[in-house]
Structure formats: structure tokens, C-alpha cells
């Protein structure tokens, strides 16, 4: 029983990290109709930058914010200078693929090939005990962060005028342009926000997952599975999908380590068979 509870909690905290990544991926898709293949790279770069900032400042909070802002800048620059120039989507996807490869190699050049680790902030070290269950405080903290981000995104989406413009753009791109919404600006902003969340997730996830070249393409397919399962462009879908994928992946790794990727394949196959657009996706 303890095993199941602890592994499920671990799954939840991993799902929380996935949500930070997948919500941005899903939003970018919703607005621009493209898949950002460099999204896992944002997560990786966030981790590395957070590590470097933490070395200099010694502050975990500054590391999180600085890395997230820097990655957001990279995302906005990519969109503003290159992706924006294309009216069709396929070249944009391919371009993000080129960037993903370049980012992988650049981090190797800058930070070297050895895996790095970021210490858990002192306040959040240790574990708490409820009955027979011992659970690290930091992992609970990550879950809380993701919940806060989810609420923030929901409020932004539903309650602000920018959020309304965003929803309009998702619903009907051309009509949104027609009524005077600056769609390229909204797209750039979404790209930046998605990159911000991914970079932020990279730092927050570093004490749990570590920082290494290769985590970009390790985590990207998981984020893909999240949006495939949850449905593209849906925040709710990203949240539900993240929990599902996080828990299934963690349980799979604990129960059948040899075939762990296979266990992910199963829920995806089932969802695709029943609802090809994902749980909350629209056709």
C-alpha cells in the first residue's frame, strides 16, 4: 500500500513538471497550429541556466526567474525573427526541429557533457511523515507550484482581456485578425509564455531529474503524449494528461523498469482508439 501511495505521489510530482512543459506546448499549438519541437530544449536550457545563475547568486528563486525569463527571450526571438515569416505551418515545425538540434549541441559546448545537479533549496529539504508514509517536501512543493501555475493560467485565460484575445485567436485565427486582434503579437507572446513555463520547469525539475544533455529529447515525447492524450490546445487536457502520463510513467518505471516506455504507449493507444482528438480536444 505504501508503495502505491508513494509511487503515485512521485507520479504526481513528475506530472506537475510535465504540466509546466505541456501547457506551453499545447497553448502554442492552440494559437499557432504548430508543434514546437524545441520545447524540450527550453526545459533543458532552463535547467542549465538555472544552475549557472544559482552558482553565482546562491538563490533558487532568482535562478528560477532568471532562467525562465532568459528562455522566454529565446522563444520570443525565435518566433519574432524566423517563425513569424511563414504563413504555412510545416516550415515552422521544421525550423524548431533545427533549433532543437542546435540547442542540444550548444549546451554540450557551454556546460560540457557531465550531468549536473542542483541542490534542493534549504527550506524545502527533508521529508514529512503522515502515518507510515514519508515523502520529500520538495516534491510536494513542485505539485503545489504546478497547481498555482494551472490556476494562474486559467485566470489569465478566462479573466483577462489578453486571455480573451488568446481564446479568440485559438477559435478562429482569421476572424480574430478581422476584428483587430494583433495575432502575430499574441502568437509571439504565447511563444514567450510557453518558453517561460518550460524554462521555469527546467529549473524546478532540476533537483529531481538532474540536468543533462539529452533530457530535451527524453522529456519532449512525454510532453507530446500528454497533449495527444489530453487534446491539443486545451489547458484542461494538459492538466489531466500530465497527471495521467506522470503517474503511469512513474508506476511503469517502478514496476517493469525494462519495459517502462511501453507502459506509456498503452494509455495513449487506448485514448487514441476511443477519442482520436484526445480527451478534451476538439475535432
Amino acid at each position: 500500500m505504501e508503495f502505491w501511495i508513494i509511487q503515485s505521489l512521485n507520479g504526481l510530482s513528475f506530472g506537475a513538471l510535465l504540466f509546466l512543459l505541456a501547457s506551453g506546448l499545447s497553448l502554442i499549438f492552440g494559437v499557432m497550429n504548430i508543434v514546437n519541437v524545441a520545447h524540450g530544449s527550453y526545459f533543458m536550457i532552463g535547467g542549465y541556466l538555472g544552475y549557472s545563475v544559482f552558482l553565482r547568486t546562491g538563490s533558487f528563486v532568482i535562478a528560477c526567474l532568471a532562467a525562465a525569463v532568459a528562455v522566454a527571450m529565446i522563444g520570443i526571438a525565435m518566433h519574432f525573427f524566423l517563425l513569424r515569416r511563414y504563413s504555412t505551418h510545416f516550415p515552422q515545425v521544421l525550423m524548431t526541429m533545427g533549433f532543437a538540434l542546435i540547442f542540444r549541441d550548444l549546451t554540450l559546448v557551454i556546460w560540457g557533457g557531465d550531468p549536473l545537479s542542483l541542490a534542493t533549496p534549504a527550506v524545502l529539504q527533508g521529508s514529512f511523515h503522515i502515518g507510515p508514509i514519508t515523502y520529500p517536501i520538495y516534491r510536494s512543493f513542485v505539485i503545489l507550484i504546478a497547481i498555482a501555475v494551472a490556476i494562474g493560467l486559467w485566470a489569465f485565460n478566462e479573466k483577462t482581456s489578453l486571455g480573451a484575445k488568446l481564446r479568440a485567436t485559438v477559435d478562429d485565427n482569421q476572424m480574430a485578425t478581422g476584428i483587430g486582434i494583433n495575432v502575430p503579437m499574441v502568437s509571439s507572446l504565447m511563444f514567450g509564455l510557453g518558453a517561460f513555463l518550460a524554462g521555469f520547469g527546467g529549473v524546478v525539475g532540476a533537483p529531481i531529474l538532474g540536468i543533462f544533455a539529452g533530457i530535451d529529447f527524453d522529456i519532449l515525447p512525454l510532453a507530446f503524449v500528454v497533449v495527444i492524450v489530453g487534446g491539443m490546445g486545451s489547458l484542461k487536457g494538459a492538466a489531466v494528461g500530465s497527471i495521467l502520463v506522470g503517474v503511469v510513467d512513474t508506476l511503469g518505471k517502478a514496476l517493469v523498469p525494462d519495459l517502462s516506455y511501453f507502459t506509456l504507449f498503452l494509455p495513449m493507444a487506448i485514448v487514441l482508439a476511443i477519442k482520436p482528438t484526445g480527451l478534451f480536444g476538439r475535432a
Binding site: F29, N33, I34, V35, H89, V93, L220, P221, F224, V225, V227, I228, M232, L259, S260, Y261, F262, L264, F265, M268, L272, P276
Partner: peptide
């Protein structure tokens, strides 16, 4: 088709890589 196809094929190839 389109991006769905692209993402699912990538995820499936990760299954093979995982094995």
C-alpha cells in the same frame, strides 16, 4: 494527419528507443 501524425510517430519511436 499533420501535427498529430508527427507527434504520435515521434512518441511511438520513443517506445522503440525505450526498449
Amino acid at each position: 494527419k499533420g501535427v498529430y501524425f508527427l507527434m504520435i510517430t515521434l512518441a511511438l519511436s520513443m517506445v522503440v528507443w525505450g526498449l
